[in-house]
Design a protein around this nucleic acid. Structure first.
Lengths: 211, 211
DNA sequence: GGTTGATGTTTACGTTGTAAACAACACATG
DNA sequence: CATGTGTTGTTTACAACGTAAACATCAACC
């Protein structure tokens, strides 16, 4: 898994590391990235400013831990979609879970998916394409294809196309490029998502061309 | 040329403001947002550190000016697509111009379109939906619809859908979420864009559903 | 015991954004 | 002409930041 190793997070008192990440996350969610200063985090975690450096190499590493917690939450949320009865409903629920997470945790979403990277492309952390959440989406699509709910095609490519479409809408909305309030935005997304899990419409729209 | 300094009437010397934005832009493009410090900008513009504050209220305002220069360049680039002979070709060229700009100016693109905003949604600058570049895309699509190159539908909604799709791909690529090098990424985008300007394919893919 | 390593602290340094006070100069108005 | 008055530049100063360095505490193991 991630940074934390041996812990039964069920009942023990939180470790200093956990308190520090928790403090950073709280500050981040409440007031954004610039509010996450090492001093503020330390104060909130009730340690001295330099204590955080015993657990995280730098502020950047701490923010990375916050991001990973976001990904954990995100994946957990997606997995709720498995409760739906059929493949089509599961894909639909996955899309809804994606949207809900992004709108309820806009800063986390931005940290996880909208951070441009300074260095050359294909350098940083493992691409999300290989991550559990993307695999989950691919599985949902493959499931639909297998059930004959959508035209056959490389499920990875289909997932990428669908993901890009939804992420494009979400990230433009979060970057405030759309003159829409949340309700109008959800309505817009609903149309796209409805197409996404309604095989009788030509979905995935570009399946014929891409696959 | 003699010792006498020659003044080109058409091309006067840049003002201090212009030099400062130019310096900020250069630093930003070369080394990213963190490299754009007021002191570094001032040094590059050959003024004292505080001089920039006579022209920009804050560092944030200066970055905003850099962003606006990016939007100017972007719009100019898009307008080259008008040289193409027909509506279909113009829409295709518009998509290519979008992609080219993003890949050639990744930091500018991220500054312009991938910046999440702290405040509540629908608060900041005028939404891009109202901006000239989006209008341009809407016009290209309306043009195609009028020419019978694609099924009728609200061109604004169609443009939004197409924009989101492309922007989703681009921004995920720039955020390094895709395990693709630039060539592979371009190939992927080409398939989507081909569908976008090829009316005989079902484009825009979700036109029937959205419109 | 004593040594060691993990964890915490205090102190200090260099860099940042920017407020404040001051200087040079253009220019309109007496 | 002198005299404000506004624009543009400067120097100086300060608080907040990330973090290096040195030191303190304390449990675990020879």
């Amino acid at each position: 898994m991630s940074a934390g190793q041996r812990r039964d997070a069920t009942k023990r008192a939180p470790t200093a590391s956990e308190r520090i990440v928790e403090a950073a996350r709280a500050l981040f969610v409440e007031a954004g990235e610039t509010a996450v200063t090492m001093r503020a985090v330390a104060a909130r975690a009730k340690v001295s400013p330099m204590a955080a450096y015993r657990h995280f190499e730098s502020r950047e590493a701490l923010m990375h831990a916050v991001m990973e917690r976001g990904h954990d939450d995100f994946l957990r949320r997606m997995h709720h979609a498995l409760a739906a009865p059929g493949p089509g409903e599961r894909l639909a629920a996955t899309g809804r879970a994606y949207l809900d997470f992004a709108l309820e945790n806009p800063r986390d979403y931005a940290l996880m998916f909208m951070q441009s990277v300074a260095g050359d492309p294909c350098a940083g952390a493992p691409a999300w394409r290989d991550a559990a959440t993307f695999r989950f989406l691919v599985d949902r699509i493959a499931e639909c294809t297998a059930a004959g709910l959508m035209p056959p095609g490389d499920p990875e490519l289909l997932a990428l196309s669908l993901w890009a479409h939804i992420h494009g809408l979400v990230s433009l909305y979060l970057a405030q490029k759309l003159a829409l309030d949340e309700a109008a935005f959800r309505a817009l997304c609903d149309r796209v998502l409805t197409l996404a899990w309604r095989p009788e419409a030509t979905f995935p729209p570009d399946a014929a061309g891409i696959a």
